[in-house]
Amino acid sequence: MDFTEEQLQRYSRHIILPEVGGKGQKKISNAKVFIIGAGGLGCPVGYYLSAAGVGTIALIDNDNVELSNLQRQIAHSMKTLGMNKADSVKKTFEALNSDVNVIAIKDRINNKNILDLIKNYDIIVDGSDNFPTRYLINDACVMLKKPLVSGAILRFEGQVTTILPGEGPCYRCLFEDPPPPGLVPSCQEAGVLGVLPGVIGALQATEVLKLILGKGKPLIGQLLVYDALETNFRKVKIPKNPDCAICGKNPKIKELSDYSQEYCTL
């Protein structure tokens, strides 16, 4: 297998794992991952996937780095304050590993652009911070049958699940519709422990690597809920809803809708 000496050193701890080996490391370097959001979750997910040598990592974010982000968004820095977040993480990830092709997209994901943006990627990671985007990503991934690793955080609690369209349930099987605007507070309103996205993002990155390698049991049909205050992990089973509006037998949703208007305050 054609690794350079530098790559042998960089990935040595992967290569000697029976579950990875040279073959697995090649799979990792051929993988293309699309991360939505270069914030609390996108930073650690992209950071670890860059370290692991994932060949292509795209990140989309339309916001600029602010001082209030640095309490948890570990791939940004004082040096990138004011810079677009996707550009900021691109600098960080490329400094960590030049094997990785980091594609920074300065845009907001929406119902018009999502299918085109993600169609050429193997795995999609949801690191968004609002429900409309979460449902949009879910629906788009079901339509394109793309594996989706979803994560969410608030205050001291986080959750992770892996959605394999066609095999397991989707986000809409769990919660049919987004909650009404204002019901669930955002991190901006309610706060979040800075390290929490690190824990949840590391779990998401782990799920991505397992999917790439085809090893272990992904969190399909399960929602892993982490309570940082109680130091408690609990798995909640998610049944597949045969009448699900997007992944059921007769899906009602035929095209991606635009929720952004009603949620504009987020």
Binding site: M1, F3, L8, Q9, S12, I16, G21, G22, K23
Partner: peptide, 11 residues
């Protein structure tokens, strides 16, 4: 790297 190279050769 002795093991890394041996493992790759075995593969």
């Amino acid at each position: 790297y002795t093991l890394v190279k041996s493992k790759l050769a075995m593969e």
